[in-house]
Design a protein around this nucleic acid. Structure first.
Lengths: 339, 339
DNA sequence: TGAAATAATGTAACCGGTTACATAAAAGCG
DNA sequence: CGCTTTTATGTAACCGGTTACATTATTTCA
């Protein structure tokens, strides 16, 4: 053994088995008939040599990476666990690899770390990448599926997310009709985030349908993040003592944690003083203090469906433009139910 | 434009800029002096052509992938969010890509999806891969760092995890000395899991130090998972009504959720009837019902440190064999404190 | 039974970069 | 000012696979 840790190549296998490299390649890829005895010989030799085909060489020659990407602006939300599990299960089933990267389009001069140069396609979560970049990749035929994000208007990139508007309408009406709340705060998510947009629409239309005027002072930024939500609400309470509120739709469950925290720190009782509803129904939500009323969203299924759609694009099949998975209100104590 | 979506190659760039491919390569990699005007010309041409170097080709030629892997047996625990964030931040800083894969060594006949053939090194989380495979990779000089797992005895693979034994000793004593508990249950994690092992040692030694006999009926499998923990405890309660218990160390916070759930379903009050302590201090833990007493573990830092160590291996530097990050008991209501 | 189809394999070009080696021009220097 | 260094660039082999094309052996079948 020389000092250079030379890896075993297909030619070494071929030589040792007394066949050509083409035959070895065919054996590896099962894409041409191989005689019984040659196959057995190859199997044995490959084991003896611990041969594993070099991924980059295969990729270069075959023009396929068997890698799919997931691009996101960050990985902070607990929500990623079910999403990732859904994605990963499908990737594994198809025998692909998954690369995960975060990217903010404001990190200009850096191109997205995932693209046609290193993957066969990708899932785009949220607003990590600009419409412009998205369109540019799409016209170059790079397979993509959007997750919790709408396609830019000028193109049709498949998009998978959950029903937001209708359920938000319902939950706001729940505040109003079941618990008699009128001063309902909405912590929206990141600006331009698509779920947040539709939740906002649902929020406003429910207010309107119930003759409650929209008060922009009650719509704050929660960023779908624990810490932002907590800070935002703390600031609000500190600076706007005169602005009353009796309910909060926190945007999502992660933000709900920050909200419960801030309310608690400031002496508000939930649900007596303030009624609270989240979104996602993460694993811990039923066990918060108080148990969180929330919207159950099939996040793992979103990941699975999106990834299946990406694979269907590889086969030149075209999924629905928009796939909306169903959501459902889960009432627990934080809104005032089950007291 | 021909119908084949031929990607732009380095030769096209070279030709259009009137230089050789070697010069283009040098410009891309900044590894040799380039004259000012050639550099500018190349920059312009590359932009015009939307040139992006083909990853596989670079990998094949340079013998480096600039990809690191994370191998795990699953991605179910919320604990992964901080871990992934720690890992990802370091990966991004070094301008690498991250591939994530799950793998059970019992899925025999399949080799691990991550290895020398497609990455420059990897982080191994937990028991997804056998000692045997680990050793085999290690002797072939594949850079690895273990996360929350000990190195096989016969080799020295750097390992990063948290202080388990001492803190578990402390928290068990907390049950005993502060809250007068004597029938303390321990839900261990997956068998052979290293953290679980040391927590078990800490548990037993605390019992011994306080003259409480170890009762094996009180040590059950919780798997560090919500659902397993809930089922295990439900079964226990159903089948062993005669076996009393007044405290539970749940193993980790995720399992704590299942435990709180099961206790609630069976009419036990926490902390009055049963005192509960978790491990990890995940984001939601302070807001469970009741707020969970737990051990704060620097999970994000574990991810960062492990990944930094992996990169240091690339530079032929050798980190500590074992890195133990500090842990701390956080008392909240579930144990009986702050009542 | 001879022609056509099929099975099994080999040869060598090619995928798109990197880099060792060579060379020419410019700069440094005694 | 001739000689050594340094700067800037080009040529072409090479990384480890895949696959088009060619070839021979074996079946199939009218």
């Amino acid at each position: 053994m020389t000092s250079k840790s030379q890896s075993v190549t297909i030619r070494q296998v071929a030589q040792k088995a007394g066949v050509s490299v083409a035959t070895v390649s065919r054996y590896i890829n099962h894409n041409a008939p191989i005689s019984k005895d040659v196959a057995e010989r190859l199997k044995r030799v490959m084991e003896e040599l611990h041969y594993v085909p070099h991924a980059a060489a295969r990729q270069l020659a075959s023009r396929k990476t068997r890698i799919v990407g997931l691009l996101s602006n960050n990985l902070h939300n607990d929500f990623f666990i079910p999403l990732l599990n859904g994605i990963e299960s499908v990737v594994r089933k198809h025998n692909y690899n998954l690369v995960i990267a975060t990217y903010h389009s404001d990190s200009r001069d850096m191109p997205p770390p995932i693209g046609p140069h290193n993957t066969d396609g990708m899932l785009v979560f949220s607003d990590g990448i600009s419409d412009e970049d998205l369109i540019s990749l799409h016209v170059r035929k790079f397979p993509m599926v959007l997750v919790h994000r709408a396609s830019p208007k000028s193109v049709k990139i498949p998009s998978v997310t959950v029903e937001n508007k209708k359920i938000t309408f319902e939950l706001i009406e729940h505040f109003i009709k079941v618990h008699g709340r009128k001063r309902i705060m909405f912590l929206r998510g990141p600006i331009h985030q698509d779920d947040s947009y539709w939740r906002e629409i649902g929020y406003k239309s429910a207010l309107k349908a119930n003759n409650i005027p929209f008060d922009e002072k009650l719509m704050l930024n929660g960023d779908f993040e624990r810490d932002t939500a907590r800070k935002t609400l703390n600031n609000f309470i500190a600076n706007k003592k005169h602005v009353s509120f009796d309910a909060i739709f926190t945007g999502d469950d992660d933000a709900a944690i920050g909200v419960l925290n801030a309310l608690h720190e400031n002496g508000y009782r939930v649900p007596e003083d303030v009624s609270v509803i989240g979104f996602d129904d993460l694993g811990f939500s039923a066990f918060l203090n108080p148990p969180l009323t929330t919207v159950s969203a099939p996040t793992e299924a979103v990941g699975q469906v999106a990834m299946e759609q990406l694979f269907s694009l590889f086969d030149k099949q075209f999924p629905e433009d928009i796939t909306l998975l169903p959501t459902k209100l889960i009432t627990r104590r934080s809104c005032g139910c089950n007291a």
